[in-house]
Computed example of a mutant assay.
Amino acid sequence: MGEAIELPESFGFTVRSRGRTITEGDFSLMTNLTWTTSEIHTNKVLMADSPGGERLLAGACVLAFALGLSTPAIKPELEALGVRLIALVGYDNVRFRAPLRPGDTVYIESRLESLLRTSKPPRAVVNCADTLLDSEGRVLCTYTRSALCDIAGTALYSGPEL
């Protein structure tokens, strides 16, 4: 990636998403959609006797729920600063810290971590540190999310428009 862009204080923020309770329907739909059919995800009776006491949502599904909560939370903040999101670039340092089960209510806390220049100004890559939490404050998952963005409308860019 490119050189880091020095961020003014106004760009330092953390936002919390709205909450979402993962219903039995959400859990089943995501499990079936992603073909994560191991009994750890599908057998309620078997998992009742496990240390977790319930089925666990697969990691790919956890990330999908997290992305669904995180983008709407951070997008208005970035747009208020003149940054326009274009596309997801990737996830780094994904760590699953605790299981997500049916009935859990989850939130994302997103912190703007950095902006990196690309070879095609006024494009940049925005990096956000995301933390998926449940309603009790238990950390379920952490990662860094990167997205391509347009910074033409910000104080961070003074070159020609595309």
Rank of each mutant, 00 (worst) to 15 (best):
E113Y: 01
R101E: 11
L116P: 00
R20V: 02
G53D: 04
G103P: 02
A64K: 04
C141W: 04
T131L: 02
A64P: 00
A60W: 12
L115W: 03
C149N: 03
D104K: 13
L46C: 01
S146E: 13
V15R: 04
L78H: 10
T142K: 08
E136P: 00
Y143D: 06
G52H: 13
L100N: 09
A155I: 12
G25H: 11
T142I: 13
V15S: 04
S38R: 12
K120R: 15
G159K: 08
H41Y: 12
V125C: 05
P99V: 09
G25M: 12
C61G: 09
D49A: 11
T71R: 04
A124K: 01
T34F: 13
E77V: 01
T21N: 08
S28G: 08
S110D: 08
L100K: 03
L85M: 14
P122L: 10
F11V: 00
R95M: 06
T31D: 10
A4V: 14
R20H: 15
V139E: 15
S146V: 08
F65N: 07
A155K: 09
N93F: 05
D150N: 15
I40S: 08
P160R: 14
P102G: 02
G103Q: 07
L46G: 01
L7G: 05
N127E: 13
G52T: 12
V139K: 15
S70H: 10
C128V: 03
D26V: 06
S28M: 11
D92M: 12
V125Q: 10
R18S: 14
A152P: 00
M30A: 15
T37L: 15
R55D: 01
I86C: 10
E109N: 13
A98K: 07
R101N: 06
S135Q: 15
C149Y: 07
A66R: 01
P72M: 02
G25N: 14
F65P: 06
R117S: 08
P8I: 02
P102R: 05
P99K: 15
L69E: 04
Y107F: 15
